[in-house]
Design a binder for these strands. Structure first.
Lengths: 255, 255
DNA sequence: CCAGGCCGCCTTGTATACAAGAACGGCGAT
DNA sequence: ATCGCCGTTCTTGTATACAAGGCGGCCTGG
């Protein structure tokens, strides 16, 4: 996915390190919880610690890693509750994208979206989850772009990037691919028809379903520690219970 | 000059610089477009360039400043279209907060919210816009917290922080304070009544109205350049038109 | 007089050296 | 033998030195 940045030898070292780490985290080469030692990273990327630190801070800002003062950086390990929280927001943002796309997409964009959806079908049949994953990503991004709101597009992408390390695990559940594709189909139809509300609702449910299967999966696998993000921000999170009292209301399929 | 952060000798220098700059930007001491020279900032804060660079990068990640490679950092100047885009997202996130708050707030939180709302009244009468601004902020944050979704709360706050340099300008419009307070009142009522949809819709409109007056204001004042954020992210934004074809659909007051 | 190119300064980007806090292991005391 | 204290060592945080690129001014040519 990053071959688009290859040709550019003129980029800052810090960016090269950041992109490299980002890729390693998203693809799962670096699993959540892994400690990131500045010196070793510097050796690995053949640069000094300065650009490494720069990259780490940017990744921390994007939420992919977590930096504890005087204790170094870890690949962010997101707890199940926090993941549920993120999906709650993401489903809403994606729904907004869909609503806006339904009313703002150009005819060309609508054609592209439909084409993208249909291009998924072969991999569905062959059960090639990784290839489907790739196209699925492009499908969702096409909807983001279709919102014609660059800020929204960026924010939504950031959140998707942030949960992607976990997303990967979940794709291989039997039957999920077909369901996902069918859900996409309904979303496409609604967008093409210009039905904002329907498109929004369908996409929201689509994301929420993934959330449900996710949380199920993580919980059964043994779950992740449910620590609060509590990053550098001094602005206190509210004191009391931070969990959603009603996790995704969409009924999700059981494992 | 930074006497507010003196007492705490135990925090990292970079954090001190970041907080200081954040404050200066949000309060308007540093206006959008101002160039931020690393060396001078280092002198001003009496630290070396290293923590300054760290702070700048974090601010860039949060969107408050913009870093152009090899050309230094500027306080982010947000164009009118981009601002409209941000409000489009913000209104949706705040609406989500309100919906969730309506169904998740504890009785104590509901009481606090109502109290906060009523505490605004005196400043309304006296026309003290700055004091009202402060309480207004706390009012909105109470709703964020009431969503019981820490991630949502954080994201919404980040966006609010990011637009706050512009927000300040808009408060002094005559009559706006009273309107704002009345809108808050309806939101509180809906939340206390547990009416999710109504609370969401009301808060969304409330934010959208501000968006409208904002964009009007900026446009008349002479407008800001409409440059694309185009930050460090290499992931290309979609190629074509990025502007909302229908700026906030809520009809906003003229003047 | 104006335009274009060249040169030098100033800024950012990177590397390295130094200081200070935290984890870990060893040693002693109970 | 186990627990706690202390020192070592490794890591991060900060400062400074060095390199490279952009911008502005100046000079020269038309």
């Amino acid at each position: 996915m990053a071959e688009d940045a290859v040709q550019n030898g003129r980029q800052r070292l810090a960016d090269r390190v950041r992109l490299g780490l980002e890729r390693e985290i998203v693809t799962g080469d670096l699993t959540p919880g892994t400690r990131l030692d500045e010196t070793r990273l510097a050796e690995r990327y053949e640069v000094s610690r300065t650009p490494v630190r720069e990259a780490l801070m940017q990744l921390a800002a994007s939420g992919l890693i977590e930096m504890r003062p005087r204790q170094g950086a870890l690949v962010a390990a997101i707890g199940t509750f926090q993941l549920a929280e993120m999906f709650e927001v993401m489903s809403e943002l994606e729904a907004l994208c869909a609503r806006l796309a339904a009313r703002r997409m150009t005819p060309a964009e609508r054609d592209d979206l439909a084409a993208l959806h249909e291009a998924c079908a072969p991999y569905l049949a062959s059960g090639d989850a990784d290839a489907y994953y790739e196209l699925n990503l492009r499908f969702h991004e096409a909807i983001y772009a279709g919102s014609h709101n660059a800020f929204l597009e960026q924010e939504t992408r950031k959140i998707r990037l942030r949960v992607s390390p976990y997303r990967r695990m979940q794709l291989h559940r039997p039957g999920r691919l077909a369901d996902s594709h069918a859900e996409h189909g309904r979303v496409v139809a609604a967008i093409l028809a210009g039905d904002q509300e329907l498109a929004g609702r369908l996409l929201k449910d689509h994301v929420a379903i993934q959330s449900g299967t996710f949380v199920d999966f993580l919980a059964t696998v043994g779950g992740l520690p449910d620590r609060r993000p509590g990053s550098a921000r001094p602005g206190r999170a509210h004191p009391g219970s931070a969990r959603p009292d009603q996790p995704p209301k969409t009924r999700h399929r059981t494992g």
